[in-house]
Computed example of a mutant assay.
Amino acid sequence: MTVRATDARRAAVLGSPIAHSLSPVLHRAAYRELGLGAWTYDRFEVDEESLAGFLGGLGPEWAGLSLTMPLKRAVIPLLDEISGTAASVEAVNTVVVAEDGRRTGDNTDIPGMVAALRERGIEQVDSAAVLGAGATASSALAALARICTGEVVAYVRSAERAAEMRRWGERLGVDVRTADWTDAAEALRAPLVVATTPAGTTDALAVAVPERPATLFDVLYDPWPTRLAARWSASGGAVVGGLDLLVHQAVLQVEQMTGCRPAPLDAMRRAGERALAAR
């Protein structure tokens, strides 16, 4: 795809709720840096029931969509094709619309996680721990499949969640062992800890951060830092945050939608940092 700065193209993020999304800030910053003055990026409140109608109304000016909850799985049957990465976790967060209207789904969360870790020098670990068992946890397992050579211990709250994480491990080729959430303090001694839980869930674990922690990847970005991330950093550990993930996955989205590579990572991160500071 050849992109001209004068081409008027559209992109947007869809989800429900969507008002909090930083995606418009990141993508618009990329367009400014790339000189795509005629490109626009908006946000739309779209739930599962209204998704098909929204997609059906897309015109030839559309280049792509970012998807957040609850649409990442619901969109799959509405697409012409999905990537192997998206299929591996049954979740699409990126839709690229071709000039002929063909819609292709991908998942940039997984390579975004890997890229965020690599930026901090984490290329490979021999074991890891995952806190939580939701949709983000399955993406974390897919990312760990690429960089973890040994066991991943998932700390969960129920037998149902434990079984689900083991199934994801089998599917993704990751050696997953599950443990009860009441023992989550033990997770903090792992070479890499990935926290995928909602805001406030890991606050009580902050007092259990070891004297010499390794690396924490906390997928939250607002509020930031979380208590766990703040204590981890104060103890000398390396911290990768949710904004790092958000920016890296958005970089990949911009590259796919515009065809411009590389996307301006630093400018996008600065825009995200300013937006969060203003909240």
Rank of each mutant, 00 (worst) to 15 (best):
T2V: 11
G56H: 08
V219T: 15
W39H: 15
V156Y: 01
G121P: 07
R270G: 05
L188Q: 07
A142V: 04
L276Y: 07
I76R: 09
L172N: 04
R189D: 14
R9G: 02
D42F: 09
L58F: 07
R102K: 14
N93I: 01
L141S: 06
Q124N: 05
L192F: 10
P191V: 08
A98Q: 14
T197M: 15
R157Y: 02
L188N: 08
V125W: 09
N93F: 00
V97Y: 00
P17W: 10
L65W: 09
T6Q: 13
P223V: 02
A190C: 09
G259S: 10
V174P: 02
P264T: 12
V152G: 05
Y31P: 08
T215E: 05
A98I: 01
P198L: 08
M165D: 01
R167N: 12
T2C: 01
L22Y: 07
P24T: 09
P60V: 04
E99K: 07
A195I: 05
V97E: 06
T201P: 01
V153H: 00
T258K: 04
R28P: 03
A208D: 15
G112E: 03
R227G: 15
G173S: 09
R28L: 14
P60C: 04
N107R: 04
R166G: 03
D47I: 03
V13P: 11
A162F: 02
R171E: 14
A30Q: 12
Q256N: 09
A11R: 00
S88G: 06
A234V: 01
W232R: 05
V92S: 08
I147F: 11
